[in-house]
Amino acid sequence: MPALILGAGGQLGRALSAALPAATALTRAEFDLADPRDLDWSAYDTVVNAAAYTAVDRAERDRAAAWAVNAVGPATLARLAERHGFRLVHVSSEYVFDGTHDGPIPESAPFSPLSAYGASKAAGDVAVGPGHWIVRPTWVIGDGANFARTMRSLAERGISPTVVADQIGRPTLASDLAAGILALLDAEPGTYQLTNSGDPVSWAEVARVVFSLSSRAPEDVTDTTTAEYFADKPEAAPRPLNSVLDLTKAEKVGVTLPDWRDSLERYLA
């Protein structure tokens, strides 16, 4: 397909570029969603927007920049899609929810963001609207700085970390997510939540899996709460405690990602 990938320098963008080697892949340095330059949009039949302002804590102080990339940018892309007729895929975030939902959160849950970052992502979802594809993952791990790499580095350096144990979700490997996004293009447009399958876990439990796969004792990871971890970080944005997304809608159209434990083990290998 004549495809354009925006945000090609990020973890998901790199995975999408690998999955679609013939696509035009632009990094933020090459295309700034907050200040879009002219492109020949008619040359593409699919545009995947993996670009985002993801500095969650900094967004609390730099709200205009987060809004420009996460809200205004997707709105611009939606208008361009209507004008030029390309399919638009926009990548969302579970931060559009406050994490208080009892059980897995469905796509239909009302937006209730806790942070400036979450509010900007929710606005982006609204701007894109139901006529396009909105894909909502959680806890992405790919080629770049991420939680799994940090824990592997700590394990190898003999450090025993303290990790939050009351934020619950599922890791999503970027390569699995990229494949899932392409598969969803065979389904009708709409919002789809897409993470790796498997039992939901805390960040502390993910850290223990990484430690175990790094020849370190899982007991070397100590639990803490979100409140305790951020007690001395007043500038930090609030985080949702429940990041477990309901995956039923994607499953009904035949898109299911592998168990996160299997994919994480493959990734760390």
Rank of each mutant, 00 (worst) to 15 (best):
R157F: 11
L173I: 08
A183T: 01
A148S: 08
R149K: 09
V163S: 11
I181A: 07
I181P: 03
P161E: 03
M151E: 09
P161Y: 01
G180R: 06
I181F: 02
G169Q: 04
E156A: 15
D166C: 07
M151L: 11
A145F: 09
G180N: 07
T172S: 08
S153N: 12
A155N: 10
G169W: 04
I181N: 05
F147D: 12
A178F: 00
R152K: 11
S153H: 14
R152D: 00
L173M: 05
S153C: 12
I168R: 08
D176N: 08
A165W: 00
V164N: 07
D166I: 05
V163Q: 10
G169F: 05
G169N: 04
L154A: 15
A155R: 12
L154P: 15
A174K: 02
V163E: 04
P161W: 04
A174R: 02
L177T: 03
P161Q: 11
R149C: 07
S175W: 09
E156H: 14
A174I: 03
S153G: 14
R170G: 08
V163W: 09
G180S: 04
A145Y: 13
A145N: 08
P161R: 06
L182G: 05
V164M: 13
G169A: 06
A178V: 00
L173N: 03
R157M: 15
D176K: 03
T172Q: 07
G158S: 15
P161G: 10
Q167D: 11
G158H: 14
T162F: 12
V163I: 14
L182H: 01
S153D: 11
A145H: 13
T162P: 10
T162S: 13
I159C: 14
S175T: 07
S175M: 08
M151W: 00
A174S: 03
E156G: 14
S160W: 00
P161V: 11
R157H: 15
L173C: 06
R152H: 10
S175N: 08
S160G: 09
I181L: 06
R170I: 04
S160C: 12
I168H: 07
R157L: 15
S160Q: 09
L173A: 03
I159F: 12
I181V: 10
G180W: 03
R170Y: 05
G180P: 11
G180D: 02
R149E: 00
R152V: 06
M151V: 12
A165Y: 00
A145L: 13
V164S: 06
G180H: 04
A179V: 01
I168Y: 05
I181Y: 01
S153Y: 13
D166Q: 06
A148W: 00
R170M: 08
R152N: 04
G169L: 06
R170L: 07
P171W: 01
L173Y: 03
A174T: 01
Q167F: 00
I181Q: 03
S175Y: 10
S160A: 09
A183N: 04
A179Y: 01
S175I: 08
T162E: 13
A174E: 05
R152I: 08
A165M: 02
